[in-house]
Amino acid sequence: MRYLMPLIAFMILAVFLFAGLSLNPRQVPSPLIDKPAPEFELHHLHEPDKVFSSTDNVGKVWLLNVWASWCVACRDEHPLFVQLANSGLVPVYGLNYKDESTTAMQWLRQYGDPYEVSVVDVEGRVGIDYGVYGVPETYVIDKQGIIRHKQIGPVTVKSMEETIIPLIIELQRQA
């Protein structure tokens, strides 16, 4: 029996790994899709005395990108947002998640700041409302303030070009 312990331990691990496959972090549909985006009011990153409210954006299509300076994968997707912001297609808002403001601002100086506004969510409260699984995440929110798409993990060239941008154009056409 003693010598079967390694096998038993491995089988337990294998069960979790198998469960992990169906929980593929990029494929889990968010329960929030096609639901109104949770409302929030948060302070600006650069001007901490200003407050941004998610309701300010009613009437336009916008992206909410959850990011943090400690997040390695954010570095990966960041150039795509800089590009997107430069194209002027859609305003991108940043939710700076569980981060230190000074490092966050330094990070933006180094990698570029694609955000109309970055807001600060130090304790991750808003992150909980949005069901943030891990950083980075990106939400496409339409004119009525409804979440239309959620990208878990870094945005790739492919998902940007094939999913996000067409969706934005489509949503912008709608009334």
Partner: peptide, 22 residues
């Protein structure tokens, strides 16, 4: 290869491959 975890390195991830390797 399976993409069960998000990472900078996670290129070419695919659950089908994950099932095979697992």
């Amino acid at each position: 290869r399976s993409g069960v975890l998000t990472s900078v390195h996670a290129f070419a991830t695919d659950p089908e491959r994950g099932i095979f390797i697992l």
